[in-house]
Amino acid sequence: MERIAVSAVRKSFNLKPGQTVTVDGVTSSRIAVLDGVDLTIDSGEFITLVGPSGSGKSVLLDVIAGLTEATSGVARIDGVEVTKPHARTAYVFQQYALFPWRTALQNVEYALEVRGVPAAERRERAKDFLHLFGLKGFEDRFPSQLSGGMQQRVAIARALSTDPQVLLMDEPFAALDAQTRDILQSELLRIWEQIKTTVVFVTHSIDEAIYLADRVVVMTARPASVKEIVTIDLPRPRDLDIRNSEAFNAYRGRVWESLRDEVGKAQRDWTLASTYAN
């Protein structure tokens, strides 16, 4: 069943007054970030997006999340056009985005709180989700008292507590050390296999993309469109050792092959990438 349908989504940003960009000899005060993205994602699918830095992957997530409006084209969830944040969509950010004045438990509760879930019920649910992520005993800690990995666990627990149909993750493990990243990838897979929500996961890491995904979507350099979709036909449940397998190696080569030219292009105009947000 089709859950997310992105069709011909374009997005461009106005630069700050006085800034211009020159692309192929044409000077403009607008910068195109997404250039006609088409992507259909099935219900329960785990999709990873890889692409060069600054290629607009995060912007695509924002469009699907209903946080930013596409300049043209539409994103639909279950056939309904996304115009504002959807109650059944959850978003996880690279920098955790936890409220520093709330404890771990209160942070998880937040999402339920703004949905009007009664206090007792949301506390129970929030606790359950913290425990699911191995954070029993840390309920009353403030984010500043937790490690990066724990903070991101809290953020993911918060996202999942609302029982989302769509989970958007923007490089959620990029700020963590390699070991913590490995652990969280496996934890995420373990939990996802139980709940089978639809995940769109942005990453820079090819290994991470392949390890997690049903399909890896390779984006072009900015302005971004879908370059290639690689279906990852590896058995589930997967464990980390799968990364040493022959098949995994083949996928790694294939995704890298597809990505290499785009990374080169992106590096050539990296100076431009710093002039716009995201």
């Binding site: 999340a65 944040p85 969509t89 959850a90 920098q95 985005a97 409220f99 004045w101 937040y110 703004v114």
Partner: peptide
């Protein structure tokens, strides 16, 4: 106020009033 917190709050469907009360005011 950290714009990321505002973004996160909005992604969770926070209303304008809740945004004031639960995000901007505490920060």
């Amino acid at each position: 106020v950290d714009p990321l917190l505002v973004k996160a709050a909005r992604s969770m469907g926070t209303s304008d009033w809740d945004l004031f009360k639960k995000v901007i005011f505490p920060s």
